[in-house]
C-alpha cells in the first residue's frame, strides 16, 4: 500500500512539473491582469489618459513620485497613428508596446529633432505607402513599424520639483495620438 502511495505521489510530482510549464507558458494570454487588458477599461482610445499618484479604477498610477505618466491605446488596422507632443519638460520618454505587452520601440527627448515628439506608428504596408507619398516625412517624424495591429503608448515626463508640475501636466495633456491622415 505504501509503495503504491509513493508511486501515486511520484506520478503527481511529474504531473506538477508538466502543469508548472503549461501554466507559465499559457499565463500571459489569460491573466486579464496585464497592462494591455486593463488599459481597455480606460477611455484611452486614440487619446492620452493621465494617471495620478493614486490608483485609478483600472489600477494605474504614476508609480515613481517624480514621473508623470500617460497612456494611449491605438490600432493601426485602418490608419497609421500620429504621435505628437511639445517640449518644455526636463525629460520625456515614451515606449510603444504591442498587445502582448512587448516593447516595440522606445525613445527619449535627446534623440528627438528639436526636442519635440513627432512619430508615426504604422503597419509595414502603411509605412511603405507613407514613404512613397512623402519621401521627406522621415526628416520630421520617427517612423515606427508595428508587428501587430493593436498596442499602446506610455508617455512619461519628469517633474523633479513641484514647480515643474504645471509644465509637465500641460505637456502630457497636449500630447496627441490621433489617426494619421
Amino acid at each position: 500500500m505504501i509503495r503504491m502511495a509513493l508511486f501515486a505521489i511520484l506520478t503527481g510530482i511529474i504531473g506538477a512539473a508538466v502543469l508548472h510549464i503549461v501554466i507559465i507558458l499559457a499565463l500571459p494570454t489569460f491573466t486579464g491582469l496585464d497592462a494591455y487588458t486593463r488599459l481597455l477599461n480606460e477611455d484611452a482610445e486614440n487619446r492620452f489618459v493621465l494617471f495620478d499618484a493614486k490608483k485609478d479604477t483600472a489600477g494605474f498610477n504614476n508609480g515613481d513620485p517624480y514621473l508623470r505618466v500617460a497612456a494611449c491605446m491605438f490600432s493601426v488596422d485602418d490608419k497609421p497613428v500620429h504621435l505628437t507632443a511639445g517640449s518644455g519638460v526636463p525629460l520625456w520618454s515614451f515606449t510603444v508596446y504591442d498587445s502582448a505587452n512587448d516593447e516595440v520601440f522606445s525613445m527619449n527627448d535627446r534623440s528627438a529633432a528639436g526636442g519635440e515628439l513627432d512619430a508615426i506608428i504604422a503597419s509595414p504596408q502603411q509605412l511603405a505607402s507613407i514613404r512613397k507619398a512623402d519621401p521627406d516625412v522621415i526628416s520630421q517624424s520617427v517612423l515606427i513599424e508595428m508587428p501587430r495591429s493593436e498596442g499602446y503608448i506610455v508617455l512619461r515626463a519628469l517633474a523633479p520639483t513641484p514647480s515643474f508640475e504645471e509644465d509637465v501636466e500641460n505637456f502630457l495633456s497636449d500630447a496627441d495620438c490621433e489617426s494619421y491622415e
Binding site: 486593463r38 505587452n101 516593447e103
Partner: peptide
Amino acid sequence: ARAGKLLLGSA
C-alpha cells in the same frame, strides 16, 4: 502579465 505594470522601455 500578472503584475500588469507599465514598465520602463529600454531607452
